[in-house]
Nucleic acid binder design. Structure first.
Lengths: 236, 236
DNA sequence: CGTTGCCTCGCTATTTTTGGGGAGGACCAA
DNA sequence: TTGGTCCTCCCCAAAAATAGCGAGGCAACG
């Protein structure tokens, strides 16, 4: 019975990006789908995709930078929940012509996407695609949405983990005082008021800002706060 | 058979926060769990929780601001995937004493949490809690993780929708130039270099910074960048 | 017992940002 | 046409941040 467990098992053994490609193909046949895409963009703009689309379509998509007009991508960037493609806005001319081209490339009429947000501004999209009637599709998604949502998250985790192995030298951890300082700076307080609320002199405060800045490799305070925020080192 | 469909049905009919409370209680019995919590914090710091814990414990938790030391909350703030409580760091003294108190309050030894990030820096935590052996718990979570992950997202969507009805005047949208400006500021560039890279005068640049600051209600540039970042208005 | 990291404070001078002000042109929608 | 929102530029004076420096105390680690 348990497709989900099988898939998790398979995923847990993957150690390379190639294996993730194999995984999505396996996923497609196991869940009996027309197509399936995992697409990740990290904060530095690096992209990675594992998909079952016709390679020519994928190539054209990248070449034409279709992500800019694809209603699925555009919609998911500003949405935060799994969504059926039908509920997106396909009314514009560009969207319609894009859909026409996609259909030509073998995409089915039905789709469902899961936006996933990870650390440091990473964003991934997990989409399934099929050709069938609305009713059949409703049954499909009801049956599989839970599984696929879970898989999409674990797949993203795995992809990040694999990519993370070829990683950049992580910023050093911040000391408690440094975190306090950056947190308060992020709230818009100035040095004088922060020093007061932390009960230290402004001189001391400056040392924290400076050391945090150096640790994070930031070029100024605003940069340091932005880095700490997007790395989850502080929370506002 | 289908608990999940029943729960989705029940959730879709909820229109008030009270009904969400009823929903988590129903969820607890349907999924046979010790406890269950949905806790949301939006960008303005407003909090909402629906939970099955002893009200006294919830009250004490809020009063003592335990979210600051709760390893589950702290862990999930910096993690982006569903996580078993066992894999968190319980080694510090404060964490251990916190856990002791939680156990006193009736919490089970096992837990599983799903961090959920929504629009404008909204953050929610969906946790399940139970008292059982590790093996039993592994079986539990395997069986239910997919359902609960799906439910957690739909519940968050619902909670946002309900709260959204009683909404605040959101920060005004930023113009493209304002976004450019804040984005570059977040990378640590100073005004001179940003003006150069945007091919405008530093005077013009200052107008953007200032108007963005006013729109966001920020007290200074760093604050504006932090707000724009945590509201997802810019991405670094 | 030395090193390392953290917390604390002080100093100087320079550079940058901030908070106001005004002003013209483009564009779009009511 | 008028009003709104952008985009662009300029001025000034005051406030704040920055880049360095040095230096003592404390706790933990080896």
């Amino acid at each position: 019975m348990n497709r989900l467990v099988d898939m998790q098992e398979m995923l847990s053994q993957a150690t390379t990006l190639e294996e993730l490609q194999t995984f999505v193909e396996q996923l497609r046949s196991t869940y009996d789908l027309e197509h399936l895409v995992y697409h990740s963009v990290n904060s530095t703009g690096d992209q990675y995709a594992a998909l079952t689309y016709d390679p020519k379509w994928a190539e054209r998509y990248v070449e034409k930078d279709y992500a800019r007009i694809d209603p699925v991508v555009q919609g998911c960037y500003r949405l935060f929940h799994p969504i059926d493609w039908k509920s997106l806005d396909w009314s514009t001319k560009t969207a319609r012509s894009f859909m026409g081209e996609a259909t030509q490339a073998g995409l089915g009429n039905q789709g469902f996407s899961v936006p996933i947000r990870g650390p440091s501004g990473q964003f991934a999209l997990f989409s399934i695609n099929h050709r069938c009637s609305d009713d059949t599709w409703a049954t499909y998604t009801n049956e599989r949405a839970a599984d696929l949502l879970l898989i999409s998250h674990y797949m993203n985790e795995k992809a990040l983990q694999i990519e993370g192995n070829a990683n950049r030298p992580a910023a050093r951890a911040l000391s408690p005082r440094e975190r306090d300082t950056l947190t308060l700076l992020a709230t818009g307080a100035n040095r004088a008021s922060i020093a007061e609320s932390l009960n230290i002199s402004e001189s001391t405060l400056r040392v924290y800002i400076e050391s945090a800045r150096l640790k994070l490799g930031a070029s100024n305070t605003t940069h340091a706060v932005a880095l700490a925020l997007s790395h989850g080192m502080i929370v506002v």
